[in-house]
Design a protein around this nucleic acid. Sequence first.
RNA 1: GGAGGAGUGCCCGAGUGGUCAAAGGGAGCAGACUGUAAAUCUGCCGGCUUAGCCUUCAGAGGUUCAAAUCCUCUCUCCUCCA
Length: 400
Amino acid sequence: MNFLDPEKQLGIIERGVDGLISSKELLSKLIKSRETGRPLKIKAGFDPTAPDLHLGHCVLLKKLKDFQELGHEIIFLIGDFTAQIGDPAGKTETRPALTRDEIIKNSKTYERQVFKILDKSKTKVLFNSKWLSKLSVQDLLALTSQVNIARLLERDDFNKRYKGGVAITLKEFIYPLIQAYDSVQIESDVELGGTDQTFNILLGRDFQRYFNQEPQVAIFLPILEGLDGVKKMSKSLGNYIGVEEDPVDIFGKVMSVSDELMWKYFDLLSAKTEQEITELKSLHPMDAKKILAKELAELLYDKSAAESAFRDFETKFSKRSFPKDAKVVKLDINNVKTLVDFVLLVSGNLKSKGDAKRLIIQGGLTINGEKYSDIDGDLPDATEFEVKIGKKEFCKVLTK
RNA sequence: GGAGGAGUGCCCGAGUGGUCAAAGGGAGCAGACUGUAAAUCUGCCGGCUUAGCCUUCAGAGGUUCAAAUCCUCUCUCCUCCA
């Protein structure tokens, strides 16, 4: 393996990260790696509990990909051991214990999604139960002796909860130790994580020192805000762009990101260089965003899918014409008495009649290019309808 | 083990016998404005056979003409003391 010049590698790695401890250590590791021809071991840990990845996770995956492209070894660590125990307390972190089967199933889903970005053949997948299930009480106690409670309490979320009188379970205290011990087992050179992982990753350094290893470099990645532009992207907040969503949806959702936030997306997710991004800033923001949307669709699918998502968007919204490939709904018109029934049967997004009525009354229903806003009105006399429901839903309806 | 506090609609949160399908905010949906931007503004926002009816305020019973509100038990969560 021929490695790039360490300084250049460092430049690529440092881009877009929120913290790096320390770049000096990383540089010396990179130099050593090039001299000995040994790739660095890059650790990233994942819980097998929530296998629905979104662009927020991609920030980390993208950085792993950078490492991968530089020739280093990615270790994708699945925290199956801890997931089997579950979490009895902590409202925000309630994690039910998972069975072996669920974990395996989740891991598969995980891998499928992760390898949309990472190169499967160059990624090593490990499960931490491999060594943790053999860890004795004695071993665990030895680890606990290395950690001071006062230090644990310094960790931001513990600190807040302790002061605010919110429960902290002992398990939560132990959790970072286990994660840190994983680094010892892997002998990782670098660990990546979100800024919320700061404490855990740094503790990994302490443990590695304790076991006479060279401490890992810690890299922290920033949080990506979701579609609302304020809160972090997360599934539970519904402001996410999922990696397995349809390319058309990915494209559309990226387009609805605010102009300001778009640049952060560029920084964290795009393969473009800083100069290229600077040049894009002179374009109309919408055009820059189209480039971003296309790139991200391509990242998660391929060029042709991205192209067709782009064309689809142009048709629907830029030219405001009815898309040729709108979903087709076949309907027995004899069963349809009112417009309300009609929309309800055609749309996949309406929950109730009240919903459908509201949509019609407020002007969200267009059939064959005409607005239908009277709920007692009649359907046009035709056998084929081009129906637009709300802003985003297009259906072609064929009657039987 | 002891003492105290809390559980309300998707989320936060007001409501302490009738005027409560339940204030306010957020989210969501639709419309206007646009670039499907963002921000803003307007309307909607439990369900239905909609001047009405039905199901909701942790769960089960009870008091009452009437209960989210009062009583009993149960469950869950939190805090403090041990």
